Amino acid sequence: MEEGGVQAIDRLIEQFIDSREAIENFLKLINALQKTGILPLLVGIVNNLDNNLTFLAEQNAMLIRNVNVIYGVLSGKEEARDVSLTELIKQLNDPDVKRGLYLLLKILKAIGNASKEV
């Protein structure tokens, strides 16, 4: 081995010795993450990073659309018209209305639950 190569290895060994405590702590962290099952989860997230980022972007876009719709209704941009009770009942058959009502009920339940804890 050339002299420069030996010196480079010597420097690496010195750095390794100087960083012994940090390396030991890092290994403890890795072992703890492995024992708790977090490490495999993190590896899975990193291995599927493209898919995960795509999913998050889609969810974010859907959230923004929903907030815009809610804002439009609450700000008066969507005109509220008089509807009959029959029309309202017919709307209950719409899957989007059902989903929306279910979400509203979950929100109301969470608010009610939180208010009794206060």
Score class of each variant (00 low, 15 high):
residue 29 L to N: 11
residue 30 I to Y: 00
residue 30 I to L: 08
residue 31 N to D: 15
residue 31 N to F: 12
residue 32 A to G: 10
residue 32 A to V: 12
residue 32 A to E: 12
residue 33 L to M: 06
residue 33 L to E: 03
residue 36 T to Y: 06
residue 37 G to W: 00
residue 37 G to F: 01
residue 38 I to N: 01
residue 38 I to V: 02
residue 38 I to A: 03
residue 39 L to G: 02
residue 39 L to R: 07
residue 39 L to P: 00
residue 39 L to T: 06
residue 40 P to C: 04
residue 40 P to Q: 06
residue 40 P to W: 02
residue 40 P to T: 15
residue 42 L to R: 07
residue 42 L to A: 11
residue 43 V to C: 03
residue 44 G to V: 08
residue 45 I to Y: 11
residue 46 V to F: 11
residue 46 V to C: 11
residue 47 N to Q: 11
residue 47 N to Y: 07
residue 48 N to L: 00
residue 49 L to G: 11
residue 50 D to Y: 03
residue 50 D to H: 13
residue 50 D to L: 08
residue 51 N to L: 07
residue 51 N to Q: 07
residue 52 N to I: 01
residue 54 T to D: 12
residue 54 T to F: 12
residue 55 F to H: 02
residue 55 F to G: 05
residue 56 L to Y: 09
residue 56 L to M: 09
residue 57 A to Q: 09
residue 58 E to S: 14
residue 58 E to P: 09
residue 58 E to W: 05
residue 60 N to W: 07
residue 61 A to L: 08
residue 62 M to C: 02
residue 63 L to Q: 09
residue 64 I to H: 12
residue 65 R to P: 01
residue 65 R to D: 11
residue 66 N to W: 11
residue 67 V to Q: 03
residue 69 V to E: 01
residue 69 V to Y: 09
residue 70 I to P: 00
residue 70 I to F: 04
residue 71 Y to D: 13
residue 71 Y to M: 11
residue 72 G to A: 04
residue 72 G to M: 07
residue 73 V to F: 01
residue 74 L to S: 06
residue 75 S to I: 14
residue 75 S to D: 14
residue 76 G to P: 09
residue 76 G to L: 14
residue 77 K to Y: 10
residue 77 K to L: 14
residue 78 E to K: 08
residue 79 E to F: 07
residue 80 A to H: 12
residue 82 D to I: 13
residue 83 V to P: 01
residue 84 S to Y: 04
residue 86 T to S: 05
